[in-house]
Simulated assay, not measured.
Amino acid sequence: MSDEGKPVEEMSFEEAMRALEEVVGQLERGDVPLEQSIALYERGAKLKKRCEQKLKEAEEKVAAITLDAEGQPKGTTPVEGL
């Protein structure tokens, strides 16, 4: 399934990452005209920014979950094997 028609701003992290991988693949093959390559590069930059934004949001959610009201770590249980 292609996410090409969906606005980047509405994509989930997974959708944006998948679309970014498609863009990179097309650019690496080098079989697209120059003007299309420029458009792909611009789309790739938007997709990269969206992925970074979604990762930051996820990090903030994790931080909010793992810190108490004073900003101190809550009691956490280490993950087995780490």
Rank of each mutant, 00 (worst) to 15 (best):
V79D: 10
Q36M: 15
A16L: 12
G30T: 00
P78W: 11
E70A: 11
K46L: 10
E70F: 09
A63T: 01
L55S: 05
L20I: 00
A19H: 10
G5S: 14
P73H: 08
A45F: 03
S37D: 06
E60S: 06
G30S: 04
M11H: 11
D3C: 14
K74P: 05
L82H: 12
E59D: 13
V8G: 00
Q36G: 06
S12R: 02
D31A: 12
G75Y: 04
E42F: 06
L82N: 15
S37G: 15
R50M: 08
T77P: 01
G5I: 06
R29N: 07
A16K: 01
A45V: 14
E59N: 07
R43C: 03
A45N: 10
K56Y: 11
E10R: 05
S12K: 03
V32G: 02
K48M: 10
V24P: 00
E59S: 07
K61R: 15
D31T: 12
V79E: 14
G81C: 13
M17L: 14
Q26A: 13
K61F: 13
A45M: 10
V24A: 02
R43H: 04
K74T: 04
A69V: 01
I65P: 02
A16R: 02
P78L: 11
E59I: 06
P73Q: 03
R50C: 12
E59T: 09
L20S: 01
G5V: 03
A45Y: 04
P73C: 06
S12P: 06
G44Y: 00
K56W: 09
E52G: 09
P73G: 04
E14C: 08
G71H: 07
P7F: 08
A69T: 00
S12L: 09
F13L: 13
G44A: 02
L20N: 01
T66S: 10
K74Y: 08
P73T: 03
L82S: 15
M17V: 12
M17F: 15
E15V: 02
L34K: 04
G75D: 13
I38P: 01
R43Y: 04
D68M: 09
A69D: 14
E9V: 07
C51I: 08
E14I: 06
E4L: 13
E57T: 01
K6R: 14
K54W: 13
A16W: 12
M17R: 15
R43E: 05
R29H: 06
L34T: 00
F13E: 12
L47K: 00
A19P: 00
Y41S: 11
G25V: 02
C51Q: 05
E21S: 11
V24D: 05
E9S: 13
A19S: 15
Q26S: 10
C51N: 02
V79I: 15
S37M: 14
M17C: 12
Q72A: 08
P33K: 15
P33D: 15
A39E: 13
L40A: 11
G71T: 11
R50P: 10
K56E: 12
A64T: 03
K74C: 07
E80M: 15
D31H: 10
L34A: 13
L27C: 04
K6C: 07
K54N: 14
A39H: 04
V79K: 11
E42C: 03
L47T: 00
S12M: 09
A58W: 10
E57L: 07
